[in-house]
Design a protein around this nucleic acid. Structure first.
Lengths: 118, 118
DNA sequence: TTAGAATATTCCTTGACAGGAATATTCGGT
DNA sequence: ACCGAATATTCCTGTCAAGGAATATTCTAA
């Protein structure tokens, strides 16, 4: 009865949870780029750039288009839409409507105590 | 001129990029819980639950309130607000307004011809 | 103070993964 | 067919982190 799968794609989160990869994603936010451009702007060596791009691509964050020698990478919209939906499912939390810790404490207390004096 | 830091907290992303921890976060979406409750509902052993909660807590995703023996964990709003802002910065991508690959290809072509002559 | 419940911490082992260096592949131009 | 540019892949190594098991800590109650 427990929902044992998260409501968000883990491979995407994992792909984003790396300094260089999140920088790549932010770079591509402003438009598609080739591997060389990405490597240059982030001060990465080309092989590392390719490797990170592979991870992002495998996770579905990116897509590639071949242009002769070059590969042009761009962001795919779907993962960000999915992430947006997921974050929105926390709107109650963000709006901070969850401060009734006191009520919860009282509930715990009731559960434990066997009806005292009345 | 290169923004060499991401616009989102990496420790938060790293904290979320784990199966059990993202499940914990989704559990707490519906309200604060104690360690024992979290461990039970996710089928985790208590030490693992505590360890994951520590990671989430250190990253600022959670906060704790002590209640005698127990620790009640709840989500903090700020990280999710920050994540929401970050995702929103990709609205162009989500709206798919970025399909002018052609224009980019032409730009590349120009770059090549102009840099050749000097 | 002792017992027991709830939680945290430590130690260990193992697998994943990032970076470096070198090499392989693919393509266009000549 | 060759060369050089752009990109991908492989191998190696060190580091980090997750899970298991055991133990330490903290608190309440009696």
């Amino acid at each position: 009865m427990t929902a044992d799968n998260p409501g968000i794609d883990l491979t995407m989160l994992h792909a984003l949870a790396d300094p260089n990869r999140v920088l790549i994603v932010e770079l591509l936010r402003d438009g598609p780029l080739t591997v060389g451009e990405i490597a240059e702007r982030l001060g990465l060596r080309q092989p590392q750039a390719s490797k990170h791009l592979k991870v992002l691509n495998d996770s579905g964050v990116l897509e590639v288009k071949a242009d002769a020698n070059r590969r042009i990478y761009k962001l795919r919209p779907e993962p960000f839409q999915a992430l947006d939906s997921w974050v929105k499912s926390f709107r109650h939390v963000m709006e901070d409507r969850f401060d009734n810790l006191e009520g919860y404490l009282r509930e715990l207390q009731n559960k434990k105590t066997t009806t005292l004096e009345e």
